Simulated assay, not measured.
Amino acid sequence: MVFHIIYLMWVLAFLPECRCLCSKPELMNVSPKGSSLGLGHTFKTFPTQSVLVCMDLCISYPMCRSVDLNREKSVCRLQVKSSVTDPDLLVATPNTIHMDKEDFPKILLDNACQTLSCDNMTMCKGNTGCIPVLDGRSCGSPPSVSNAAASPAGPFPVGHTHNYTCHVGYDSLHEPYTTCQENGKWTDVVFLCQRTSPKYTLLGCFEDSHYYVLESGPHSLLINGQRQCASHCDTLGSYRYFGLQVGSQCFCGNIMRNNPRELPATECNQPCNGNSGEECGGSWRMLIFSS
């Protein structure tokens, strides 16, 4: 908190736009330097390095709930969401400061725009009134994302946020949002749907022999591992178990034959072929999973 106060005092002391604030020193509540709402909630961007200009722009747009300012890139993003009402949206972002409209200095909020009650499609021009700058502007259908539910048909008004949902069997990566901007384009989509990693139950490390504990195999795989061996067994039939041995070998089976002796896990720690992040048994040592 002390760092925030020192940083904001520095901003107010050196920005020319701060003269009116310097006569009435007030503190702004900002997120730690290096935070933002990401890209998915922006409806308009402006080129500026000024904290005060960025906040003033947000005040003039009733749709704006917060700002993200990257002073290094001179980009001010006006957002349709705030971290006050949606704290889970705040993410770590280098060289960026996030500020919610609820926490702007009162001196900035004490202007004509606060009494005009302009609607979201307008821009407040102070004594001039509410100017309908966003009326009639829209975006088409949101960009499609592979393995996600189909995007709805447009058009959508400026400020509309689309929330992506992955198909069953896929996990979401990155922020699942895109917002219609005032230029008629959706914000860049960084969202991905990645196939859910199968969950296998490790039964243990077992001693093997020429009679083999599992009936199908060995199958030599150039790239071996839990997912690779399980997928290979699926192509051969319906099996309850799969086993990894001596780095490259994959076995499949419905019963564990020959009453194998269980061994310490340390005897099944040979790296998998082409997949050194996983262990694939050892010499006559089979790591067995139920699938």
Rank of each mutant, 00 (worst) to 15 (best):
6 I>P: 01
7 Y>N: 14
11 V>Y: 07
12 L>W: 11
14 F>V: 15
15 L>I: 14
15 L>S: 11
19 R>H: 11
19 R>W: 11
27 L>H: 14
27 L>R: 10
27 L>Q: 15
27 L>Y: 12
28 M>Q: 07
31 S>Y: 15
34 G>T: 10
36 S>H: 04
37 L>Q: 09
37 L>W: 08
38 G>N: 03
42 T>C: 06
43 F>L: 02
44 K>H: 09
46 F>N: 03
46 F>V: 14
48 T>G: 05
50 S>D: 10
50 S>R: 04
52 L>C: 13
52 L>M: 12
53 V>W: 08
54 C>T: 05
55 M>T: 05
56 D>R: 10
56 D>V: 14
56 D>L: 14
58 C>I: 12
59 I>S: 03
62 P>I: 01
63 M>V: 03
69 L>T: 01
72 E>S: 13
76 C>M: 11
77 R>I: 07
85 T>A: 13
87 P>D: 13
89 L>R: 03
92 A>I: 14
93 T>S: 14
95 N>M: 11
97 I>E: 03
101 K>S: 11
101 K>P: 01
101 K>T: 11
102 E>C: 06
102 E>V: 08
110 D>I: 08
110 D>T: 09
110 D>L: 13
115 T>K: 12
120 N>D: 14
121 M>P: 00
125 K>S: 14
127 N>L: 13
128 T>Y: 07
129 G>E: 01
136 G>I: 06
137 R>A: 06
138 S>A: 10
143 P>S: 01
144 S>C: 03
147 N>I: 00
147 N>M: 08
148 A>Q: 09
150 A>Y: 04
151 S>G: 06
154 G>R: 13
154 G>I: 11
154 G>A: 12
157 P>Y: 07
162 H>V: 01
163 N>M: 12
163 N>R: 13
164 Y>H: 10
165 T>V: 15
165 T>G: 05
166 C>W: 00
166 C>S: 04
171 D>N: 15
177 Y>D: 00
177 Y>P: 00
179 T>A: 03
179 T>K: 05
180 C>L: 10
180 C>Y: 10
188 D>V: 11
188 D>N: 07
189 V>G: 02
191 F>H: 15
193 C>N: 07
193 C>P: 03
198 P>G: 06
199 K>F: 08
200 Y>K: 09
203 L>A: 08
207 E>I: 02
208 D>W: 00
208 D>K: 01
209 S>M: 03
212 Y>D: 15
214 L>P: 02
218 P>V: 02
218 P>L: 02
224 N>I: 06
229 C>G: 08
229 C>M: 09
230 A>P: 01
233 C>I: 04
234 D>M: 07
236 L>M: 14
236 L>F: 05
237 G>F: 13
239 Y>V: 00
240 R>E: 02
242 F>P: 05
242 F>V: 02
243 G>R: 04
244 L>A: 10
245 Q>P: 02
247 G>N: 12
247 G>R: 13
247 G>E: 12
248 S>H: 09
251 F>R: 00
252 C>R: 00
252 C>Q: 00
253 G>T: 05
256 M>V: 12
256 M>E: 09
257 R>D: 08
258 N>L: 15
259 N>T: 10
260 P>Q: 06
262 E>G: 01
263 L>A: 02
264 P>L: 02
266 T>Q: 07
266 T>C: 04
268 C>E: 02
271 P>N: 13
276 S>V: 14
277 G>M: 08
277 G>D: 07
278 E>Y: 08
280 C>T: 12
287 L>W: 00
287 L>D: 10
290 S>N: 06
290 S>F: 00
